[in-house]
Amino acid sequence: MNAPLLRCRGLEAGYGASRVLFGLDFDIRAGEVVALLGRNGMGKSTTIRSIVGGLRPQRGEIVFDGRPIHAERADAIARLGVAIVPEGRQCFPNLTVHEHLVAFAARRNGVAEPWTPARLYALFPRLAERAGHLGNQLSGGEQQMLAIARALSTNPRLLILDEATEGLAPVIREEIWRCLALLKAQGQTTLVVDKYVDKLLALADRNLILERGRIAWQGSSAELDARRELWGRYLGV
């Protein structure tokens, strides 16, 4: 079996004296979509922050494509091919949609078919209509599409989505899920955090449930679908 694209071993992280993660062990293989589940405060965002270099782990190791990244700076990790779609979108208010897509499209990261503005506009036709609008002139849904397109424009080998459908209208949420399914079909490795478990089941290959900073359960979507008692116990659904 191939080595995993991302490997976390004994990951412990927190804020000052407050420990949030207690020895996480998990892998993400190339082409896989992995869902990170759990109630609020269980450590999902801390896990993501540790992977992208926003938070230095206190113990353990994170290896991306065979290279330890737990001590790397955030920009160096991003250049290796880890892109995050952050909670809250964080589009640049003074860059147009088109500028968002060309400003970050420099690296290929060994991707055979790099993301060009034309491909991104094909994925999100609504962005093409708004190409000349500034980041702060877009609706919430358009900003979310732009945040995903911006992350894709860096040609990531691992795409991380943190609550990508949070606060969006149902029709826009469906649009985002459709795009994520399309990305999966194209072989995009993805780690996704979201609260819509039923949607995640349809998308993810594997699911990790976090409970108080530990992985309480992990398995395939079919297994999670069959074990509804886990939903109530760990996800509050």
């Binding site: 992208v52 270099g53 955030a74 920009d75 990790i77 991003a78 892109a83 964080q90 208010p93």
Partner: peptide, 10 residues
């Protein structure tokens, strides 16, 4: 506009 986001973008 957002220095930390630029860092996260590499």
């Amino acid at each position: 506009d957002n220095e930390m986001r630029m860092v996260a973008l590499g």
